[in-house]
């Protein structure tokens, strides 16, 4: 699993404060911690920085590159800021996060990626928003995003399609569709374009204590559908352990066996079955209930884990 570490994100108050104070060591520690935990790339979400982009983006690149060789992922709506960052990169091939299928973004962002030999995350989102159905999302990739890359002679291996994870709390009907979108986009080109998602979006607006299990179960389902790249928190040990179990096919724990079954069922285009689960094991029961909400079989509620399984 190629993990784009998400922890340098302006939404975190600590990051915000450190950025205001230009606390280089804070960012260097966070970069090292993520790299040591298994991140393959570091996302830099600094917000738009409308006033100080010229200074902030290069400063961040210099700060992080001083301690890490990992590729950097520029996560901003401010193209001038991204370009300032790209110009400062001296190490690995960076990523731009992101373009959508909207005409204006598509006109401006891919040429920038081309010019600086950056990879590009492209969202399957047009001007009318994010479609629910898997087919419509695949069509956006097939009919808009990939043709635009071809038009610029931009390598499809550098075009990372993001079919967009939405939260189970409020956008539940999107959750199963995303799994199928991940599966199908792999057939959109030969060789398949890379696919990445923002995993933790699936548990946005979910009470804090339930976020890890939802993220982990969804991760197993998406890996079953063929996902091998995502923006996620590499410091989330539960998530990293789930990924390890799936990658090494470690059957030594009961929960691990269930995660593998879920993964394999999805890979075989089947749905996980009740008989796969030992409901007397609370951990497995919780995983099963989570599968049910992520497949939109049972309506999500904040207390869904406390309810009897359906």
């Amino acid at each position: 699993m190629y993990i784009i570490g998400e922890n340098i994100h302006i939404i975190s108050p600590k990051v915000k404060d450190a950025l205001r104070a230009k606390d280089a060591s804070f960012f260097q520690e966070l970069a090292i911690k993520q790299a040591e935990a298994g991140a393959s790339c570091l996302d830099l979400n600094l917000g738009p920085r409308k006033k100080d982009w010229e200074e902030v983006f290069p400063w961040m690149v210099k700060t992080v590159e001083a301690v890490s060789d990992l590729p950097l992922c520029f996560d901003s709506t401010n193209l001038l800021g991204i370009e300032a960052g790209l110009k400062s990169v001296t190490k690995a091939q960076p990523i731009i996060n992101s373009t959508s299928a909207e005409a204006e973004r598509l006109a401006n962002v891919p040429p920038l990626a081309k010019k600086y030999n950056a990879r590009l995350i492209a969202l399957t989102m047009g001007k009318s928003g994010i479609p629910v159905s898997a087919d419509e999302r695949v069509n956006i990739a097939l009919e808009i995003l990939i043709p635009r890359a071809l038009e610029l002679d931009f390598p499809i291996s550098d075009l990372i399609i993001d079919p967009l994870v939405l939260t189970v709390s409020g956008c539940q009907e999107y959750c199963p569709e995303l799994i199928e979108a991940v599966r199908t986009i792999q057939y959109a080109w030969d060789p398949p374009p890379p696919i990445s998602v923002g995993l933790s979006n699936v548990s946005n607006a979910v009470p804090h204590k339930n976020r890890p299990i939802i993220n982990q179960v969804y991760c197993a389902m998406l890996m079953g559908a063929g996902l091998n790249m995502m923006i996620a928190d590499p410091l989330d040990q539960g998530l990293m352990e789930t990924i390890r179990i799936l990658e090494e096919r470690d059957e030594s724990s009961n929960a691990g066996q269930l995660y593998l079954k879920i993964h394999d069922r999805v890979a075989a285009m089947e749905e996980p079955q009740f008989e796969d689960v030992d409901m007397s094991d609370p951990e497995q029961a919780a995983i099963w209930k989570t599968v049910q909400i992520l497949y939109n079989k049972v309506i999500y509620a904040d207390s869904y884990l406390e309810q009897a399984a359906v």
Binding site: S169, G170, Q172, I299, A301, D302, S303
Partner: peptide, 15 residues
């Protein structure tokens, strides 16, 4: 007007 909240409120009341 939200299925999740409807269900959650039923849970809270029955709890």
């Amino acid at each position: 007007m939200d299925v999740n909240l409807s269900k959650q409120l039923n849970i809270l009341i029955s709890d």
